[in-house]
Design a protein around this nucleic acid. Structure first.
Lengths: 313, 313
DNA sequence: ATGAAAGCGCTAACAT
DNA sequence: ATGTTAGCGCTTTCAT
């Protein structure tokens, strides 16, 4: 592989002139430019990215930490991020965490080593205080409210929509509400927000035996319906963490020859539209786009979008 | 940020000794090692990845070119790739192509620039002959049969399963078969394989007006059913490119109060299991895992797995 | 076991 | 407008 020095030698110009040509800078005469470009073409030369990155002090890779599961939350977020990255010249590096703190810490160390110029956490097991310690080494964007921590945040403000959702259900005189969550009960801010909204509307906590976590798919919804229906047969509503999960619930009831309880989805996927049940759109695609944008900036920023309650007429 | 030279200076040892400590090499005395490690800890030093990569001549990034759409094919493949990459020390870089040849060419150029140490093409718009020209710059793995080209290949051998599928349908005395494809008709080897298998079984080509491409979702299936049913009302079977797409077809018929035609899926997703229609499992997760493995190797290799016909009893 | 020094290939400040 | 050269931070021969 020829280097910039080979081009310099063979063109009769210096390394810096070649560099100028490569980077389309000013102060290169037409003849110089042409001579250099001719040799470049002749030797089939391309500049080495590794050398460039070292010289520049950073590369153009943005790491995206995600638990590596298939929940639509991550898909939509990732699609938004990729969409924004597409024309930016930056690359998205997938960093699966499996919610493992050791792994997450390793990614933070890599940020410090300049293996990435920024990091986006779509979720994290590590406490925010730890993430904050690494913000000095590069932009760190969290897809949740980071409170007072010196960490950028781009997220969806869910509380109002959850509140509106439960008020809507209260209107419908629903009595026994099952709640399906993504992760295990207390772990995530999202779960807390749901529980808080529920309590605010109904003035009591959700029955523990009607709450299940770990839902990521249609099938999970199906199984959860089975389990919960066995526990309590008069459930008249399922508040779920995804339209497809709600659809799984419905399928179970239909397969049993029962009428489906009231369904409530999230993510505004196709199924809630087709089956005409209410859902919440958290605008994750938009969040992803913005998260990427912030990742490129050098300042700490906080943005929130409003989750949107969608009720079919 | 301290550099290796700072560590050398402050520890009283040379740069090379520090380097040896960092890389756990032989020929470092206990006292030297301890002295160096102490300073490393004191200065909170970590080696710079960019410098390492330049010195080593390559980085640990594997680019994965994919069209950036949501078809389960790419998800499953990507999941397999990520699964294999997880413990490897290598990173997966997402390279959306939108089937754009210019974009794909740019990724190949980046391979040449050593921005990636290998490239996996889950799909490509560029001809194989062009890809082959870049194989000299790094391992290139295609997820399809690459014939005689000097390109690694890891893919699923679909023909036999397609043949078996149509034979199965012939057994059922199906007459009017609609065919739903991923991309537009002639573009992909997959489409050709389907058409060839069809013709071999039924001794004539599929009716052109019963073939539609561009299917990626439930909704696409729904719309396609609508369109095709309007064109011809006696379709008695839909051979689709995905279980969820087949499910969309079914939904349309049900919504019209009609009985669903026979469905045939692909990808062996949950829906074919729940609704008990036949499907084909192309084992993309496994293909992805293997593709990654080959990406790390320096030799050109070809692997194929057998697609599997799955018929519920 | 340890160190000196020559790369790796490019950028950019400085000089002319 | 063009050239010289000192980095960028690490790895790796080659001496000692």
């Amino acid at each position: 592989m020829p280097t910039i020095r080979d081009i310099a030698r063979q063109s009769g110009y210096s390394v810096s002139t070649v560099s100028r040509v490569l980077n389309h800078q000013k102060y290169v005469s037409k003849p110089a430019q042409q001579a250099v470009e001719k040799v470049i073409k002749a030797l089939d030369y391309v500049p080495n990215s590794l050398a460039r990155d070292l010289s520049f002090g950073q590369n153009k890779n943005i790491g995206v930490v995600l638990p590596h599961n298939d929940h639509p939350y991550f898909n939509q977020l990732l699609n938004g991020i990729m969409d924004a990255a597409f024309t930016s010249g930056y690359h998205i590096v997938l960093l699966p965490s499996e919610y493992n703190q050791t792994v997450e810490l390793d990614y933070l160390e890599q940020l410090k080593r300049k293996n990435f110029s920024a990091l986006i956490f779509t979720s994290h097991g590590l406490p925010l205080s730890v993430l904050a310690q690494y913000a000095q080494y590069g932009q760190i964007v969290c897809c949740e409210d980071t409170g007072d921590y010196h960490l950028s945040a781009v997220y969806s403000n869910r509380e109002p929509a959850y509140l509106a959702a439960f008020k809507h259900l209260a209107t419908l005189k629903v009595r026994q509400i099952a709640i399906l969550l993504s992760r295990n009960l207390e772990q995530s801010p999202t779960s807390s927000a749901i529980m808080a909204a529920y309590q605010q509307v109904f003035h009591h906590k959700p029955a523990e035996k009607l709450v299940i976590g770990g839902m990521t798919s249609f099938n999970d919804g199906y199984q959860a319906a089975k389990t919960l229906h066995a526990r309590q047969s008069d459930i008249d509503c399922f508040f779920t963490n995804g339209d497809d999960i709600a659809t799984g619930v419905r399928q179970y009831y239909l397969d049993q020859g029962l009428t489906s309880p009231l369904l409530f989805g999230q993510e505004n996927q196709l199924s809630s539209f087709l089956l005409q049940f209410p859902t919440i759109d958290h605008h994750f695609f938009t969040v992803g786009q913005k998260a990427f944008e912030v990742a490129l900036s050098t300042e700490h920023q906080k943005f929130s979008f409003e989750s949107e309650l969608i009720v079919p007429k």
